[in-house]
Amino acid sequence: MRAIVISATGGPEALTYTDHPDPEMNPGDVLIDVAAAGVNFIDVYHRMGRYPLSLPFVPGKEGAGTVAAVGEDVREFAVGDTVAWGNVIGSYASKVVVPASHLLAVPDGVTAESAAAIMLQGMTAHYLTHSTYEVKPGDDVLVHAAAGGMGLLLTQIAKLRGARVIATVSTEEKEKLARQAGADEVLRYSGFAEAVRELTGSGVHVVYDGVGATTFDESIASLRPRGMMALYGQASGPVPPIDPQILAQRGSLFLTRPTLDFYIATREELTGRAADLFGWVASGQLRVHISHRYPLAEAAQAHEDLEARRTTGKVLLIP
């Protein structure tokens, strides 16, 4: 098969497009011909070695495609099924092996590309709004990087739950995308905490922050007493250590650093969140904005564009 292989961590040039042995199957596995693989910042962290993996490896943690073969213990899936997966390494390839327990059937009305685009970001947006902080009608919610793939999904799902969404973006073009997704107010990053206070009076109920170092302090300052700071990523770099006393001084705030693994810890959780997402996509309640599709061979360019913030919405690799 053809795949992207990382033999040494580093910049985008570490992503090498090459021939690679087909993945080996175990009895509970499914072999899939990949139709699309999602590109996410966690792939960048893996490439850089920030989240180390054993070298060499094929990056990529989400995708969708067609079942090519099933292991002898697999009963839920059959050859020809359209399926999707997340949190399984090795998706930047023409073929991938996924344990059946991690696999989801893609229903009619949802394309393989849309399914690939929501396996990490959609699942994350779901647990953030339904479990980490359960958004309620009338809540004020602050969403950073609202024109990115994650931000657009978070904005839409928060609106489905009845929130007023305050979004941050960096350009006028991105503001248009955030408003199309339903954002009620759109701010630039400079001085956003003061603007949030002016809009809300006492601050927001929750901040969904995947940016990290450059937004963290103002995100904390944007919260109302007993508000929730959900730091789910660090696109701008890790947040320095903080004194927990700050949380007391700001009004008994809550701070959490959630990750997807702990919110799809059971098959029931995984399929339940997927059912909501697929249902919303099929009905048109949730729009998946795929802004860039790159051939698999151009994975390095996809990473460059993602890191330089030249992309909006979701980025996919097409084998």
Rank of each mutant, 00 (worst) to 15 (best):
E194V: 10
D305H: 14
L306V: 05
P258T: 03
F254V: 13
V211K: 05
S252R: 09
G279L: 12
E307Q: 15
A235H: 02
V196T: 10
P238A: 11
Q285I: 00
E198N: 15
P295F: 07
A302H: 06
A275G: 06
W280Q: 03
I220A: 01
A193R: 07
E198Y: 04
D305W: 00
H303R: 14
R226G: 05
S219I: 14
L270I: 08
L296D: 08
R226N: 13
Y232W: 07
P225M: 00
A302Y: 00
R287D: 14
L296Q: 12
I242P: 04
H292T: 13
S283A: 15
R257E: 01
L316K: 09
Y263H: 14
P241L: 03
D217R: 13
T215G: 05
T259W: 08
G233E: 06
P241Y: 02
F216M: 03
G191F: 08
R293I: 09
A299W: 07
R293Q: 10
T311P: 11
P295T: 10
Q301F: 03
I220P: 00
L260Q: 03
T256A: 13
Y263R: 04
L306W: 00
G237Y: 04
L255C: 09
Y294H: 14
G212W: 12
A235V: 12
V239R: 10
A221E: 10
L223G: 06
E304M: 15
L277A: 10
R310A: 14
A274R: 11
L316N: 05
L296W: 10
V281F: 08
A195W: 10
V204W: 03
S252M: 08
T200P: 08
F192R: 08
F262A: 14
Q285G: 12
A275Q: 11
S283R: 14
A302M: 08
L277E: 10
V239H: 12
G203C: 07
G227T: 03
L223W: 01
G313F: 09
Q234S: 11
Q301M: 11
L316P: 06
A308E: 11
A274W: 06
G272M: 12
S291W: 13
A275T: 12
E194G: 15
L296T: 12
A248Y: 09
P295Q: 10
L255K: 02
L199T: 03
L270S: 07
F192I: 05
